[in-house]
Design a protein around this nucleic acid. Structure first.
Length: 580
RNA sequence: UGGGGCGUCGUCAAGCGGUAAGACACAGGACUUUGGUUCCUGCAUUCGGAGGUUCGAAUCCUCCCGCCCCAGCCA
C-alpha cells in the first residue's frame, strides 16, 4: 500500500472536503433524530455493517458502509463491523481479510468493535433451546423437497408439517442430536412455529438451524449445526445492543420475522430500517455475477480495475474521498434507482483536480522535428505542478529539437472547430514555444509518420510573442531524447450497455474495449521514479494512477482512472452524428 | 392472481397542506498557456393517472396504472 493510501486512512472521517458540507440528511437520520428526541434508546446510536465474508465488497457495500459509519459518527455513536459468518459452505478468511482492508481503506474505523456472528454461536444455540422450551420452535424431519411443497405458493397457504407438534422434550432431544452430529445433513432442521398460512412466506415456519458437517473458518469443527440468517441476525443485533439495524430493501419481508424472534425471546429489540441498494449503469453490482466474471476469466481478478469492487476501484486509482463523496451525494431512499456512473467520475475528478500533480505524457506518439532548433541543443523549461494549488510548486522539463506530440493533435484535413495542429497552422507547445507546421512526412501507406515544424524563439515558455499573435490550441509534448517509455492501460466501462441485465446473458454485453493497453507511450522523464500508487493528471488526457501491483522500479505502469471532460470529443461526436 | 415495498426533471434526490431545493447530465456564454478547472445562464406551471376534500394538495382521501421484492436447509 502506498504512503498516500496510509495517509488516507489516518485522515479518515476528518477529511476537510467532507467536513464543511455538513451532516447528511435522509429518512434514516430523521428516524434517528426522532429516537434521540424521544429517548427511545437512551440517547445511544449504535449501527453495524454486517457483511457475509463470501465475496469482495463493491461500491454498493460502500454505500452501506458510509451510511452506517456515517450515522454513528454524525450522532456520536458507534458502528460495529460484524461478519455474518453463518454459512461455512461459502465463507472464508480470504474474504474476511479483504473486507477489513477495504473498510479501512475507505477511511472507517471500527475501533474495538469487531465482531463475528460465529462468536455468538453458543448464545444463539441457547436461544434456540429457549424457543423450543416455549413451544415456539420444533425439529422438522421433512426432506428439503417436502418442506418446499408444504410451504405452499404465493397464492396458496402452506400446510403444517406432521412433525410440527412434537413434544418439547422430543424437540430438545432431537436438537441436541443435531448439534452433536448424530443426524445426517438433510435429515432435519429446526423451525420456528409461526403460521403456515401467513401471507408473508417468510413467516411460514422459517428454518432456524440446519445441519452442516463442514468446518467453519473460525470455529473449526466445533459445530455441526449453523443458524440461518433470520435467526442469527436479529439476535446478534440484540446482543450488541444495536439501535438502528440498517439493511437493504429486499429484507423488508424479513422484518416481521426479525421482530417475531426478538419478541418471542423477550430480549433487547433494535429496529430494522431498510433502504434501497445502489445500482450503477454500465456495470453490475451482483455478488454472484461478479464472482462469475472473476471465475470465468472475463476480468483479471477481484481487483481488476474495471471491477466495481472496492479493491478494483482502488487498483484503478479511485480515492477513498471520492467514493465517500459519491456515497454522500447519491443520497439514501427506499425507491429503486440507478445512478449514472458519470456522477462517480465527477466525484473522482473533483478530488483529483485539486490533488493530482500535472505531468505531460504522449500516449500515441507522433514524431515532430523543429527544423530551426539547434541540432544538439536542449534546454530546461519551467512547468507548474498544479495550477489549482501553488504550494505544489514547479518543476523543469527538458525540450529539444525532436519531440513527440499526440497523434490526435494533428489532422491533415481538419474539420471545422478542430483547433489543433494542421499543415500551415501554428499552435503552442505547453510551457515551450509556438510552433508552425510546414511539412508532413508519410510512409508508403500514406500514414503520417512525422511532422516538420519551425518554432518562434520569442515565445519561450509558451508566452505570446510581442506582435500579439494568438493561437487556438496548446498541445502537450515530450522531448524524444529525454522521454521515458511506459505502458499505459486505458480503462473504460465494463459493459457497453447501461443495464447489462436487461436482456440476454449479461456477459454478451461486456465491452471489448474496456481495456486497451498502450505500450509505446512517452512520458516526461520525472515519471521514471513515480512511486506505485500515485496519482497524476496527464495534461489534456485524464487522471492516471501508477499501478501498485505491476509497476516496477524504473518501469512504471499507469492506469487511466478517468478522462478529463472532453469538449472536443463531444464536438467530434456531434459532427460525426450529422455526417460532418 | 397472496403479502410487502416504491412511483417528484434524462439520472439521483429534497419536499411532511402554503404555492417544486440541490447535484450529475445536457445546452449556451465568459475566462483560460490543459477544448481541463473556475464563473455566469438556461433546464419539472408541475410531482404515475383520474377523481375528491380544502381558500390552498407533490403532500390528505378514493379508485386505477406501472415497477420491484418474497415460495433457499443463501444472506
Amino acid at each position: 500500500m502506498s504512503g498516500e493510501n496510509r495517509k488516507g486512512v489516518e485522515n479518515a472521517q476528518v477529511d476537510p472536503a467532507e467536513k464543511d458540507d455538513g451532516a447528511s440528511s435522509n429518512f434514516i437520520t430523521h428516524i434517528v433524530e426522532e429516537d434521540l428526541k424521544t429517548g427511545k434508546y437512551d440517547g445511544r446510536v449504535v449501527t453495524r455493517f454486517p457483511p457475509e465474508p463470501n465475496g469482495y465488497l463493491h461500491i454498493g457495500h460502500a454505500k452501506s458502509i458510509c451510511l452506517n459509519f456515517g450515522i454513528a459518527k454524525q450522532y456520536q455513536g458507534t458502528c460495529h463491523l460484524r461478519f455474518d459468518d453463518t454459512n461455512p459452505l461459502k465463507e472464508s478468511v480470504e474474504y474476511v481479510e479483504s473486507i477489513k482492508e477495504d473498510v479501512r481503506w475507505l477511511g472507517f474505523d471500527w475501533e474495538d468493535h469487531l465482531y463475528y456472528t460465529s462468536d455468538y454461536f453458543e448464545m444463539l444455540y441457547q436461544s434456540a433451546i429457549q424457543l423450543i422450551e416455549k413451544g415456539k420452535a420444533y425439529v422438522d424431519s421433512l426432506t428439503p423437497d417436502q418442506i418446499r411443497e408444504y410451504r405452499g405458493t404465493l397464492n396458496e397457504p402452506g400446510k403444517e408439517s406432521p412433525y410440527r407438534n412434537r413434544s418439547v422434550a422430543e424437540n430438545l432431544g432431537l436438537f441436541e442430536k443435531m448439534a452433536n452430529g448424530e443426524l445426517g445433513e438433510e435429515s432435519c432442521v429446526l423451525r420456528a412455529k409461526i403460521d403456515m398460512a401467513s401471507p408473508n412466506i417468510v413467516m411460514r415456519d422459517p428454518t432456524l438451524y440446519r445441519i452442516r458437517r463442514k468446518d467453519h473458518h473460525r470455529t473449526g469443527s466445533k459445530w455441526c449445526v449453523y443458524p440461518m440468517y433470520d435467526f442469527a441476525h436479529c439476535l446478534s443485533d440484540s446482543i450488541e445492543k444495536i439501535t438502528h439495524s440498517i439493511c437493504t430493501i429486499e429484507f423488508v419481508n424479513n422484518r416481521e420475522l426479525y421482530d417475531w424472534i426478538l419478541d418471542a425471546l423477550a430480549v433487547y429489540h433494535p429496529q430494522q430500517i431498510e433502504f434501497a441498494r445502489l445500482n450503477l449503469n454500465y456495470t453490475i453490482l451482483s455478488k454472484r455475477r461478479l464472482i462469475q466474471l472473476v471465475e470465468e476469466g472475463h476480468v483479471n481478478g477481484w481487483d481488476d480495475p474495471r471491477m466495481p469492487t472496492i479493491s478494483g476501484l482502488k487498483r484503478r486509482g479511485y480515492t477513498p474521498a471520492a467514493i465517500r463523496k459519491f456515497c454522500d451525494v447519491i443520497g439514501v431512499a427506499r425507491r429503486d434507482s440507478t445512478v449514472d456512473i458519470s456522477l462517480l467520475e465527477h466525484c473522482l475528478r473533483e478530488d483529483l483536480n485539486v490533488s493530482a500533480p500535472r505531468v505531460m505524457a504522449v500516449l500515441n506518439p507522433l514524431k515532430l522535428v523543429i527544423e530551426n532548433y539547434p541540432e544538439d541543443a536542449s534546454e530546461m523549461l519551467d512547468a507548474v505542478n498544479n495550477p489549482e494549488d501553488a504550494s505544489m510548486g514547479k518543476r523543469e522539463i527538458p525540450f529539444s529539437r525532436v519531440i513527440y506530440v499526440e497523434q490526435d493533435d494533428f489532422m491533415e484535413n481538419p474539420p471545422k472547430k478542430f483547433f489543433r495542429l494542421a499543415p500551415g497552422r501554428e499552435v503552442r507547445l505547453r510551457y515551450a514555444y509556438f510552433i508552425r507546421c510546414h511539412d508532413v512526412i508519410k510512409d508508403e501507406e500514406g500514414n503520417v509518420v512525422e511532422l516538420r515544424c519551425t518554432y518562434d524563439p520569442q515565445t519561450r515558455g509558451g508566452n505570446s510573442p510581442p506582435d500579439g499573435r494568438k493561437v487556438k490550441a496548446t498541445l502537450h509534448w515530450v522531448s524524444e531524447k529525454h522521454a521515458i517509455n511506459a505502458e499505459v492501460r486505458l480503462y473504460d466501462h465494463l459493459f457497453n450497455v447501461e443495464n447489462p441485465l436487461q436482456s440476454g446473458d449479461f456477459r454478451q454485453h461486456l465491452n471489448p474495449a474496456s481495456l486497451v493497453v498502450l505500450t509505446n507511450c512517452r512520458l516526461e522523464p520525472g515519471l521514471l521514479h513515480a512511486s506505485p500508487g500515485a496519482h497524476f493528471q496527464f495534461e489534456r488526457l485524464g487522471y492516471f494512477f501508477s499501478d501498485p501491483v505491476d509497476s516496477l522500479p524504473q518501469k512504471p505502469v499507469f492506469n487511466r482512472v478517468t478522462t478529463l471532460r472532453d469538449t472536443w470529443a463531444k464536438i467530434k461526436k456531434a459532427q460525426g452524428a450529422t455526417g460532418g
